[in-house]
């Protein structure tokens, strides 16, 4: 199939970028989207051009490093799908495809489609953990955790940290990312004791990184490859407010 691409090119963080057109006359519908970009890059290198930088690693939808804004949507048109799992069979012969980086002021562009998401790491550093020491933990079965609780906690913990929630949010809010972690740990008895404090610290860091606020539009849960529910944002708010109300 024949594909026309319009891709964001930007030399470095400070340079001004622009959309550039590329044609690929011979795309196999079984290719993944990133394999299609591989093919384009190989072509660019051979013709002496600068290949397009884009983030990716595992290519099986779990590492969270890939993340492109494809045809106006985070990770493209399919639901519950990362960019690397998107396949060309979902496009039509002759399509024009727009490819842009995830945009937010907290996600500066490094080059072309590659962005810096270290803000997410810093949010986790602010409190996205259970303060336990390695090496000496109590017997795993000492605290039973209900089947459903474990499943619910997993749903929140499944976040891959790709940033699609921020990219699609009209406020560039990281509430779903932060809420998923707060909620995951708040649901488990091991994480519950420091939960309000955790919520408070992580929210403060989210704010400091320059993410916007949440207006509960729900766009994030639609674009989330792991389909994490915005209910976890509500739980984060609950934990946060609990801290505010109960703090001594």
């Amino acid at each position: 199939m024949k594909i026309q691409l319009k891709i964001w090119r930007q030399e470095n963080a400070k340079a001004k970028g622009k959309m550039v057109d590329y044609d690929l006359p011979d795309v196999n519908p079984e290719m993944s989207f990133l394999e299609m970009l591989d093919v384009l890059n190989e072509k660019l290198i051979r013709s002496g051009d600068d290949p397009i930088e884009f983030d990716h690693d595992c290519r099986e939808g779990i590492c969270g490093q890939c993340g492109l804004f494809i045809n106006g949507r985070a990770h493209g048109p399919m639901s519950a799908t990362t960019t690397c799992q998107l396949h060309m069979r979902h496009f039509e012969d002759g399509d024009t495809i727009y490819v842009e980086p995830f945009r937010a002021s907290a996600f500066p562009v490094v080059k072309d489609l590659r962005i810096d998401r270290s803000a997410f790491d810093r949010i986790i550093q602010a409190g996205g953990f259970i303060s336990t020491r390695t090496g000496d933990a109590p017997e795993a079965n000492a605290i039973p955790i209900g089947h459903q609780t474990a499943e619910d906690a997993f749903d929140a913990a499944a976040c891959i940290g790709c940033g699609a929630c921020v990219a699609t949010c009209k406020n560039a809010s990281a509430a779903l990312f932060t809420g998923a972690k707060v909620s995951h740990l708040a649901m488990l008895p091991q994480g519950e004791p420091e939960s309000p404090e955790r919520a408070e610290k992580m929210v403060a860091q989210m704010e400091a990184e320059g993410f916007g606020h949440c207006t509960n539009t729900g766009a994030c849960e639609v674009e989330c490859p792991q389909e994490i529910s915005i209910e976890h944002i509500a739980r984060m708010n609950f934990e946060y407010n609990k801290a505010a109300v109960l703090e001594k």
């Binding site: 949507r73 842009e100 002021s105 406020n171 320059g210 916007g212 207006t215 729900g218 766009a219 639609v222």
Partner: peptide, 25 residues
């Protein structure tokens, strides 16, 4: 604040409207 958070560069091609109802946004 949302405007600051989004940053100066918008999307050249934006179909985020497909995801949520208009009044929510």
């Amino acid at each position: 604040r949302a405007k600051q958070a989004r940053g100066p560069q918008g999307y050249a091609y934006d179909k985020r409207g497909q995801v949520t109802p208009w009044y929510v946004r």
